[in-house]
Design a protein around this nucleic acid. Structure first.
Length: 345
DNA sequence: AAAGCGGGGGC
DNA sequence: GCCCCAGCTTT
């Protein structure tokens, strides 16, 4: 049996029943693929159901407000995916009359659809023989063929795509592509792969040379930046608070948060008061208290956010005050959502 | 070519 | 604490 035949056979015996495996509808496949980018199946699954219920068709998604899309996406992370998802739904409705393009080349033009996702949709929905190369495929191929070229180098990306193309199963690209990814997720796992009863263990180079734990090779150099956030939780005489929308570059674009004072270091009460004084347009403050004495450290991939929440009772009513009942209708980062859950007026 | 972008789960 | 997850876009 060839490599691809063994993958297909294994897939037939071990594949999980997943909701997007029972359809070829490009809308549903596209939705699932975007959600699963850098995201585990278990984490993305509830969102897949929520979205299909709220937006049964691409038209429903295209007609929705971005705020509603972001709210449903809340907690899944990488929010550009949600913004691009929404933009692409509008594009599909307006430029493609509601029908997704049916080739890799055309699919790749859609916002948020890169090499992997275009290959996935083209192969799963339209039987186009285009190999998918995701994190799972990098792992399987690098181990089986004993390749130590870094998977995130320019050379590695090109090499593994070509290798994937050489070994793919053209006649059943749909099951083969999903099969090799599933194989990487279940059998050839990052840690503790089940080499003992692996259908490829007689010809796996990494196993033969005892290099399974060394592969794949990845050049890693993420620097973590520390940031110091002070969130100002205004409470006016009506019990209303204020939110602002994050604009421009950086994290959490278009999501909402309490008014933010970012500092170069952790601030004490006096320093914070000075900062507030420098700002203009703030309401008159009756009292100011620190909510969490120990800074909450919210950890993102590239940033550690040392966060303090300050409660500011205002003398006058806020101009655009938001009640605590309606605050939950805004899309917010998990950091803010967690605070809202625990804080009671 | 490198950096930026979330949040969660496994060990 | 570290690594990884059905990656993509911008600089």
């Amino acid at each position: 049996m060839t490599f691809s035949e063994r993958i297909l056979k294994w897939y037939g015996q071990h594949k999980r029943e997943l909701p997007w495996r029972t359809t070829k509808d490009p809308y549903k496949i596209w939705l699932s693929e975007i959600m699963l980018q850098q995201t585990r199946v278990a984490q993305g699954m509830p969102y897949y159901y929520k979205f299909l219920e709220a937006f049964p068709t691409v038209y429903d998604l295209a007609n929705a407000d971005e705020q509603k899309v972001l709210k449903l996406w809340q907690g899944l992370g990488y929010y550009s995916r949600a913004r691009n998802l929404h933009a692409t739904s509008k594009m599909v409705v307006e430029k493609y009359a509601g029908g997704f393009p049916d080739t890799y080349k055309e699919l790749k033009k859609l916002k948020g659809v890169g090499d992997y996702t275009a290959s996935a949709i083209a192969s799963i929905c339209f039987d186009e023989p285009e190999p998918v190369v995701d994190g799972n495929v990098y792992r399987v191929l690098s181990r089986y063929f004993g390749i130590d070229t870094p998977i995130n180098s320019t050379e590695g990306i090109k090499y593994f795509k070509e290798l994937a193309r050489e070994v793919m199963h053209i006649e059943n690209i749909r099951d083969y592509n999903q099969g090799i990814m599933e194989f990487g997720a279940i059998q050839c796992a990052p840690k503790k792969p089940y080499c003992l009863h692996c259908p490829l263990n007689e010809s796996c180079i990494a196993l033969k040379e005892n290099r399974v734990t060394e592969l794949p090779v990845k050049i890693n150099k993420i620097k973590i930046k520390n940031r110091y956030f002070n969130y100002l939780v205004f409470i006016d005489p009506n019990g209303n608070t204020a939110l602002e929308q994050r604009r421009g570059k950086g994290i959490w674009q278009n999501l909402y948060q309490f008014p933010l004072l970012e500092a170069k270091k952790a601030l004490n009460l006096v320093e914070l008061k000075e900062q507030i004084m420098e700002e203009s347009g703030f309401p008159k403050i009756e009292s100011l208290t620190l909510y969490n004495k120990e800074p909450l450290i919210h950890k993102l991939s590239h940033q550690h956010l040392h966060t303090r929440f300050w409660i500011l009772e205002t003398t006058d009513r806020l101009k655009e005050g938001i009640s605590w009942e309606t605050i939950t209708s805004f899309p917010v980062p998990v950091l803010i959502a967690d605070f809202i859950k625990t804080y009671k007026i």
